[in-house]
Structures are given as C-alpha cells and as structure tokens.
C-alpha cells in the first residue's frame, strides 16, 4: 500500500493569505484556482489574516508552502515579519510573495528570507512552478543541514 501511494508525487498543500488591511483579492483568488488546477490543495485563508493565523494554519494543516498576496506598499514590512514569525515557530516553509512589488524591493525581500516573488503577469505555469521550486529547494536545504 505505502509503496503504491508513494509512486505518485505527494500532493502539495499551500496556505494562501493576505495580511493587513489590503482588500484586493482578485489576484489571490485567481492563484487559488491556478494551484488547484495544477493539482495542489489550497488552504485558503483569504483577507486580513494575522501572522498567528498563518502560523496556526501551517502547523495544523502541515502546509508545504505559503503564498502571500500583497497589493499595498506594506510588503516590505509585512512579508519579512511573516518570515520571522515562521522561523520563531520553527516552521521551515517557503514564503512566496505575489502581487505588486517594485523591482528595487525584490532583492531586499529575498535577503530577508522570502523564497520567491511573482509579479503581475506571471503565467499559470510560472505560478505553479514557482511554488514547486520553492518547496523543492526548501526541502533540499533542510535535508542537507
């Protein structure tokens, strides 16, 4: 039985959330469907989530990745705080930021531990592949150490 199941790649579980006041959810809802259609299980938290809510979801749902959607200028404050909150909880889960992030902020965000950034206009395949890659490189990292 166990052998049979493990021949299929394990189904990725992804938590999707928006932090803070920002209420633009057109993008995150599209991403939810893209990931579902790429065969993933999306735990959709939606709008106005706290760091604690996201941490809770990652723990209880044993998520493989987190997608944060950001459409205000608050990505520079909120995304690194999310990364820190995960680290504090001992969760080794990649954070992928999607939405509106200006070029000059990409490097600083990556340095602060964000796994990847998806801009507007990323294709469905890019979105799904970015999540898969982020999970794979996090696994490689954690199995090495």
């Amino acid at each position: 039985m166990a052998d049979e199941v493990s021949t299929n790649p394990p189904q990725l579980r992804v938590v999707l959330a928006k932090l803070g006041f920002d209420g633009h959810d057109r993008g995150i809802k599209i991403v939810a469907r893209i990931l579902r259609d790429a065969g993933m299980e999306v735990i959709y938290l939606g709008l106005r989530q706290s760091y604690k809510n996201v941490v809770n979801a990652v723990e209880q749902e044993d998520a493989d990745a987190i997608g944060l959607s950001m459409h205000n200028a608050s990505h520079m404050t909120l995304a690194p705080k999310m990364v820190a909150a995960l680290a504090e909880a001992g969760l080794e889960v990649p954070v992928v930021v999607g939405g509106i992030v200006p070029d000059e902020d990409i490097e600083p965000l990556l340095e602060k531990g964000v796994a990847a950034i998806l801009g507007p206009g990323a294709s469905a395949e890019e979105v799904a592949q970015t999540i898969r890659d982020a999970v794979a490189s996090m696994r490689a990292e954690t199995s090495q150490a």
Partner: peptide
Amino acid sequence: RDSDHDWALGEVGHC
C-alpha cells in the same frame, strides 16, 4: 482603524 493599529504600519497617510 486608527493610525496606531497593528496593521497600520506602512499604511498611514499612504493612499
């Protein structure tokens, strides 16, 4: 919400 709300950081006076 007021400007001293937790989530207001980075948003006060922005848009």
